[in-house]
Amino acid sequence: MADDDTASLQNNPHDFGKLLHGCNHYRRRCKIRAPCCNQIFFCRHCHNESTSGLTNPKERHEIVRHDVKQVICAICNTEQQVAQISKEQFHCNDCGICRVGGGTKFFHCQKCGSCYDVTLRDNHACVENSTKNHCPICYEFLFDSIKGATIMNCGHTMHMDCYKEMISQNQYRCPICSKSVCRMSRTWQRLEHEIEATAMPEEYRYEIPILCNDCNNTSKASFHIIGHKCNHCKSYNTRRIGTVTNSLERQI
């Protein structure tokens, strides 16, 4: 298989050295010359990471991506003016920046203020300028991140990789608003069965006030060590908002 891949790259000159060059941010065959300091880096992120660590605060700076005029080929080291754009790279006029992944695979949501995968068109909850924030997991700024992002049911956005890692850790609440990030009906049914099969001792059979994280309504629920069900939307994504102090309420 490796030999076949090598032969394919050799047969197509446009693929020569493809995926063999680049940095942790991009796999590409050219570098940029930063007009601000005249240094060479694989990308603007590499430049910003390097200059942000300078010991002299006055020398710290970030590159203005639109000012980059010169690129250096990573294959032959030829320096030339910025020219041909990769087919997988596209410019979004509404975002004001270039993105990777192919223009036909993304759309710009005017309310959210960013580009998303076309599968999310008319299929997501909008939150104004939702990507003009940091990922709640890794805290990288989302708007100009090169990592793929996803929108949760509540409308908040995070990196897709961070979302998958969160789900793998059995965490199903949005780190920002605590709403359920996906459909939880099967999980609620399982909890229902577990609660029915686990009777609480007599001294713990009382009601407590709860707040539902999903519908934001308050109600009362029978205390149980496993969970408390919202009387409005039937969600178990709830939190206890008070204690029972009256002995009469304990007997109800």
Rank of each mutant, 00 (worst) to 15 (best):
M1W: 07
A2N: 00
D5V: 13
T6L: 14
T6K: 14
A7M: 11
N12Q: 04
P13K: 13
D15P: 01
F16E: 14
F16Q: 12
F16Y: 12
G17L: 14
G17C: 09
G17E: 06
N24V: 08
H25T: 08
C30A: 03
K31T: 01
P35K: 03
P35W: 00
C36K: 01
C36V: 00
C37T: 02
C37Q: 02
N38K: 14
I40T: 13
F42T: 07
F42W: 05
C46Y: 11
C46F: 15
N48Y: 10
S50Y: 14
T55G: 09
T55M: 08
P57S: 07
K58A: 11
R60P: 00
E62C: 08
V64L: 06
H66C: 06
D67I: 01
I72L: 14
I75D: 12
Q80E: 11
Q81D: 11
V82F: 01
V82M: 05
A83K: 11
I85L: 12
C92F: 02
N93E: 13
G96W: 03
G101E: 00
G102P: 02
T104D: 13
H108R: 11
C109E: 07
K111H: 10
C112R: 05
S114F: 14
S114Q: 03
S114T: 13
Y116D: 09
D117I: 04
V118E: 08
T119F: 10
T119S: 15
D122L: 10
C126L: 03
N129V: 03
T131Y: 02
C135L: 13
P136K: 08
C138E: 03
C138S: 01
Y139P: 00
F141E: 12
L142K: 07
D144S: 08
G148Y: 04
A149V: 11
I151W: 05
I151P: 01
M166C: 08
M166N: 09
I167T: 09
S168Q: 06
Q169R: 11
Q171N: 10
R173Y: 00
S178R: 12
S178L: 15
S180M: 13
S180V: 04
R183N: 12
R183F: 02
M184R: 00
S185K: 03
R186E: 05
R186A: 03
R190S: 02
R190P: 00
E196M: 12
P201V: 05
E203G: 00
Y204L: 10
E207C: 04
E207N: 06
E207G: 02
P209C: 04
P209M: 02
C215F: 06
C215E: 03
N217V: 05
S219Q: 09
A221N: 07
A221T: 10
F223V: 01
G227E: 02
G227L: 03
K229E: 10
C230I: 08
N231W: 05
N231E: 15
H232T: 12
Y236W: 06
N237T: 01
R239K: 10
I241P: 06
G242V: 11
T243Q: 11
T243L: 15
T243Y: 15
T245E: 12
N246K: 12
N246T: 08
S247D: 10
S247L: 15
Q251A: 06
